[in-house]
């Protein structure tokens, strides 16, 4: 129990004093994860919508693969990205291993299937609801997709959010491809792993509370944005 208490004290102290290292680490966590979520959403949301609306030959197989990829163990993703980006790997010439870019790549691979899958379910349900109406109203395919994306935007935001939640708390893959380098690729989760390794539970818990607080803060913010939007006009 005393360790949790120590952790809380450490966390409060770190935040109150605006600890520059904590600030840097937090900012880096956000940069990496937000970038990854933006890229993964740009791929995953339209992919999900396409899978819901368009019938094509390998649609079912694609969905099955997508769902399977959702359960991808991050450590394995990390290992594969590591081998790809290593100087002796196929993409070694770019020198990306142990950089934030490598971490973003790993996170994009981990969360794109998740975002696409949730988006697919949301758009599929909405499409089932709207199908007859939109056919009856003689809409074009473009109008259908735009309408579904717009009317389903809150569900889609949830998809991106789920991706954010998974990415911000992920440690296995980014530890491997980022290397947890101080001032370069150290983020909240890898810093926690490091402090735990040192037996410094106080600081580790402190960082953990910051991580939890951050996740809650971002979720609440987006929830709040969604609500104000729905209360006003569309």
């Amino acid at each position: 129990m005393s360790e949790i208490w120590e952790g809380m004290k450490a966390a409060v102290w770190l935040i109150v004093t605006l600890d520059p290292e904590l600030f840097d680490i937090t900012l880096r966590s956000l940069q990496v994860t937000v970038t990854a979520v933006v890229i993964a959403s740009a791929i995953g949301l339209p992919l999900g919508a396409l899978l819901a609306i368009q019938r094509f030959r390998y649609r079912r197989a694609t969905i099955a693969v997508l769902n399977a990829l959702m359960g991808l163990p991050p450590v394995v993703v990390g290992l594969i990205v590591y081998l790809m980006l290593s100087r002796s790997g196929p993409f070694g010439v770019f020198g990306l291993l142990f950089t934030p870019t490598a971490m973003i790549i790993a996170q994009v691979i981990i969360i794109t299937p998740l975002i696409a899958s949730i988006a697919h379910q949301a758009i599929r349900d909405l499409w089932a609801e709207y199908h007859d109406l939109m056919i009856s109203m003689n809409t074009t395919k473009g109008q259908r997709i735009r309408t579904l994306l717009w009317d389903g935007r809150r569900a889609l935001m949830t998809a991106s959010l789920a991706g954010f939640g998974r990415a911000i708390g992920e440690v296995g893959a980014i530890m491997i491809v980022g290397g947890n380098i101080d001032n370069a690729t150290r983020v909240l989760t890898t810093a926690i792993a490091l402090e735990t390794g040192k037996g410094d539970f106080g600081l580790a818990l402190g960082l953990g509370f910051v991580l939890i607080g951050l996740a809650i803060f971002v979720n609440l913010t987006i929830h709040w944005v969604g609500r104000t939007e729905s209360e006003g006009r569309w």
Partner: peptide
């Protein structure tokens, strides 16, 4: 009736 997830106006 299919109610679109929008305001009555929209």
């Amino acid at each position: 009736p299919v109610m679109m997830r929008r305001s009555v106006r929209d």
